[in-house]
């Protein structure tokens, strides 16, 4: 019986100690946690996975450094999946600090794709990703709503040149790609209200397939669009990013984060359960003693 009382009145420093140990251990080790994939993330993956070689995906990098922790992993997993499958990508950045994020992502992913790697049991040879052939980065332009609409007419209308200054007509991969009609999927990875413009001006007017990657706090308010079919999927926060990393079999920072999050949550739940077990056992004993 003393045990149950102890369960109830444990010094909180044991909670701290266990939590620290679990977090540091989970952070430093390299095991992977099972991640439950939600249908709204699976649908994005299925869409990309179903695209044939040479298809075009537009990735809109609309976030800045303060949302990097949650959103960068989504970009990394998604773009790497595309490039491994030789799907061409067009990048846009409609938030002020987006280009920096995009350049960093392109550099890192190019580096990663140049090595041989196995995903989901399929071996991919490392290859050189070439600017202008495998991807085209259009850069930043202000007035995002107008840019989104403009690209519906022709990409070279808002963007006469790409980010590096090459006229768009001279970029090899943009030959034959005029507007959204030639794009198979648009993924908006965003930490702000540019998402609304992609939904209403972009998807609403041109009817392309749109998927969203959002920060954790934003996620809840975009579920209605999923219900109405305006978007094909949502990746929400670190959780969504980790799910996508799991689907693409490309563990990155989000899975690292979840590796800490899950055991930490479990520790907290464990302590709550312990406290309640102690509480009920104690109550039961008191009742019994009171009767006796």
């Amino acid at each position: 019986m003393e045990l149950f009382e102890r369960l109830m009145k444990l010094d909180r420093r044991w909670v701290f100690l266990l939590l620290i140990i679990v977090c540091v251990w989970a952070y430093a080790s390299s095991f992977s946690v099972p991640i439950l994939v939600m249908p709204e993330v699976q649908s994005i993956y299925d869409k990309v996975e179903g695209l044939p070689e040479g298809s075009v995906v537009l990735v809109a990098i609309d976030y800045d450094p303060n949302n990097l922790a949650e959103l960068h992993p989504m970009t990394y997993a998604l773009v790497e999946q595309c490039w491994r499958k030789k799907i061409k990508t067009i990048f846009t950045a409609l938030s002020m600090n987006g280009p920096g994020m995009c350049v960093q992502a392109i550099r890192d992913i190019t580096d990663s794709v140049s090595r041989d790697k196995e995903y989901n049991g399929v071996m991919y040879k490392g290859r050189e990703v070439v600017n202008g052939v495998d991807y085209c980065f259009l850069g930043y332009k202000p007035y995002y709503a107008i840019v989104i609409l403009g690209m519906g007419q022709a990409f070279n209308q808002p963007y006469p040149t790409d980010y590096y200054g090459t006229p768009l007509d001279e970029v090899p991969m943009m030959r034959g790609i005029i507007n959204y009609d030639q794009v198979d999927l648009v993924v908006d990875i965003s930490g702000g209200n540019i998402t609304d413009a992609w939904i209403s001006y972009g998807q609403g007017r041109f009817g392309f397939d749109l998927a969203l990657g959002l920060t954790g706090v934003m996620t809840a308010q975009y579920y209605p669009y999923l219900g109405s079919g305006q978007i094909i999927g949502i990746m929400g926060g670190l959780l969504g990013a980790a799910q996508y990393e799991k689907l693409t079999d490309n563990p990155g920072r989000a899975k690292d984060g979840m590796r800490v999050q899950l055991p930490a949550h479990l520790v907290i739940i464990l302590f709550i359960v312990m406290g309640n077990v102690g509480f009920f056992a104690n109550k039961w004993r008191m009742k019994r003693e009171g009767r006796a």
């Binding site: 977090c23 952070y27 430093a28 922790a69 959780l239 800490v260 999050q261 907290i268």
Partner: peptide, 17 residues
């Protein structure tokens, strides 16, 4: 909120590592 708070600690761990 638990998740956001644990992320804060992960950030501190990251800096230390």
């Amino acid at each position: 909120t638990v998740m956001a708070r644990i992320s804060l600690f992960i950030n501190r761990l990251q800096d230390t590592f």
